[in-house]
Amino acid sequence: MMTRTITAMAVALMATGTFAQAQDLVINGEIPITTRAPAPDFVPAFSEVISGWEFRSPETQQLETDDFENPGMLFVEAAREAFSEPLKEGGQSCADCHESPEALAGARAVYPKWDEEHGEVQTIEMQINECITERAGAEPWGYVSTEMDNMSALMSAVSRGMPVNVATDGPAHETWKQGEEMYYTRYGQLELSCANCHEDNYGNMIRADHLSQGQINGFPAYRLKNAKLNSVHDRFKGCIRDTRAQTFKPGSPEFVALELYVASRGNGLSVEGPSVRN
């Protein structure tokens, strides 16, 4: 009887949008992932920041606990092969400068970050293209492209479990402020900001979607919905489009700023990509 009451209460809680308290996420039985962390001071609305993993169904959550079940890892493996292939005919490969993908562990956790030489904040995709064009003298990859999304997933995979730690001060601060302003701007004919859904309403259902905090520590994300890797900027593009707005382009200065700001809201969560989401 008691059990039945508790079950009923749990169902009622779920129905009102309270998400299930998840068990801990450990990948391959050996990489513990921090899915809840104290919120940074500049996010007064939250006491905790929470990975999108906690908002997904137990079945979807399960897929991320084992690399043999995580479809995103197929793309990581493809990038591992590409890592040692010449970037142009007879040219250098990533492996000519970087001993192994694992030698780049930790990089993902601090991007986007200020690039002194170029005088701008760079995302990891921009850094990858800088390597390809300036070091290897090859043609850049598309900002959102199979090669780029795969390599971005590899960079995440080798940093999994490390805390996101992007800098919001110093020379990056101006860009960070731009991102913060965008986060609270109500775009489009629906006049919706990122904050309307992901700060004020996380945990609630909006039609069939269970709203998360919009954290990006799990990107690129393998979505069951479209069965591919989804980059951060591709997701931003879709979100702003869905406010009936003229959206921004992946790789645009606006999305770089927004990525820095949103990433900083998840400082303390683990790098988790490639995550599995619905």
């Binding site: 109500r186 489009g188 004919q189 629906l190 919706l192 489009r241 869905d242 406010t243 009936r244």
Partner: peptide, 30 residues
């Protein structure tokens, strides 16, 4: 947070419905 259903101006970066593109003409209310 509720959208305004009978309004057609005063927006920030309004688009052409859900295409993500700029509108091609004056906006209609939703």
């Amino acid at each position: 947070m509720m959208p305004s259903f009978y309004k057609n101006e005063g927006y920030i970066r309004p688009g052409d419905a859900y295409t993500g593109d700029a509108p091609s003409g004056p906006l209609e209310p939703i």
